[in-house]
């Protein structure tokens, strides 16, 4: 078990700032997800921790030891790549044993450790198979096993399930979580899938343009997003720009009490926190029945479209006039929270 400390790390490519003064402490055995859209700097950050990119400034410490000057082969990290990056001229056993052979471990120990880790990832008996004979999910398991067999202090996963189908992705992320908790290995997981981050992480780091937008537990990121960007990025969110005057937020015919100073504001309401009653604030554009629940699209008179999640999709129909009743809201001004219902 090891801890990772990233302090004021920046990476500038020519004129582009990929990572901007990023700081984060990852505790022993913690699994932290780096979440953000493409180009937010999450993979660059992971590559800097792995030693594949050199930071322009800042410090990266593993167990209080500076590693920034070390090449990848000397860092106590193990990286799992998006494309598996298996060596196709070697079989599964040789892929896993390669790192141990470089460390000149005895043959018996290599065999024992490789077999143990193959068992851990559910590939017992696959050692003699060529990697090209494996399915995508099995290849990703081999890639994970290749990193785990060396017992790294920090495990780095760079969108490892991006090339897999949804079903397999869900199964593998559960397996990765189980393995990570069993081994108590400190892990950094890069993803742009919010559901993956919410399902896996002890903490989520939401990144945007190389900067941290929010670091928090998954439930907090979902329920109490720190910025409008996080609110819009995690889950489905109605983000409504409007004006506050005399304690009331207004946008077209929609208004809601908001006890903050007058001025512009962005209101964030989850579809599940917006109930509908008969009225005249908006007109239902479409009702989608998902079986377990319904999703209603409502158009305000100025064209703003708002989503509401209801338990019974048959209760409303397209063309019906409704009023919107938020049960929980967050309000933002200047990229910061100004109000949040408890």
């Amino acid at each position: 078990m090891s801890k990772l400390t990233i302090a004021d790390v920046s990476k500038i490519f020519s004129t582009t700032v990929a990572v901007d003064t990023f700081s984060l402490d990852v505790a022993d055995g913690e699994l932290v997800c780096l979440l953000g859209p493409s180009g937010s700097g999450k993979s660059t950050l992971l590559r800097m921790i792995g030693g594949f990119e050199t930071p322009s400034s800042g410090s990266i410490r593993i167990d209080d030891e500076e590693v920034i000057h070390l090449p990848p082969e000397k860092r106590p990290t193990g990286m799992v790549f998006q494309s598996h990056a298996l060596w196709t001229h070697m079989n599964v056993f040789q892929n896993l044993a390669f790192g141990l052979k470089l460390r000149r471990r005895p043959k018996a120990e290599i065999k024992e450790r490789v077999e143990a880790v193959l068992d851990l990832v559910g590939l017992k008996g696959y050692g003699s198979r060529m990697t090209t004979q494996l399915s995508g999910g099995q290849q990703q398991r081999v890639a994970l096993a290749r990193s785990l067999v060396l017992e790294p202090k920090i495990l780095l996963l760079d969108e490892p399930f991006a090339s897999l189908d949804q079903h397999l992705r869900e199964r593998l992320r559960e397996e990765v979580r189980d393995i990570q908790q069993r081994l108590k290995i400190t892990t950094l997981f890069v993803t742009h899938g919010q559901d993956e981050a919410l399902a896996l992480a002890d903490r989520i780091v939401v990144m945007r343009d190389g900067r941290v937008e929010q670091v928090a537990r998954p439930d907090m990121v979902y329920r109490e997003p720190a910025t409008p960007f996080v609110a819009g990025f995690i889950g489905t969110m109605n983000l409504i720009d409007g004006t506050v005057a005399n304690g009331t937020f207004s946008r077209a015919s929609f208004s809601v009490p908001l006890p903050v100073a007058d001025g512009p504001a962005t209101l964030a309401i989850r579809p599940e926190a917006l109930s509908l009653t008969a009225g005249g604030q908006g007109i239902i554009h479409r009702v989608t029945d998902y079986g377990t629940h319904g999703l209603v699209d409502i158009d305000l008179p100025d064209g703003t479209r708002i989503k509401s999640m209801i338990s019974d999709a048959k209760a409303f129909a397209a063309g019906q006039s409704v009023d919107l009743k938020p049960t929980a809201i967050s309000a933002y001004r200047d990229n910061a929270v100004i109000y949040r219902t408890r």
């Binding site: 594949f52 082969e73 390669f98 470089l102 890639a143």
Partner: peptide, 8 residues
Amino acid sequence: EAARDVGA
């Protein structure tokens, strides 16, 4: 990079 990562 994977090879460098395992120590090559």
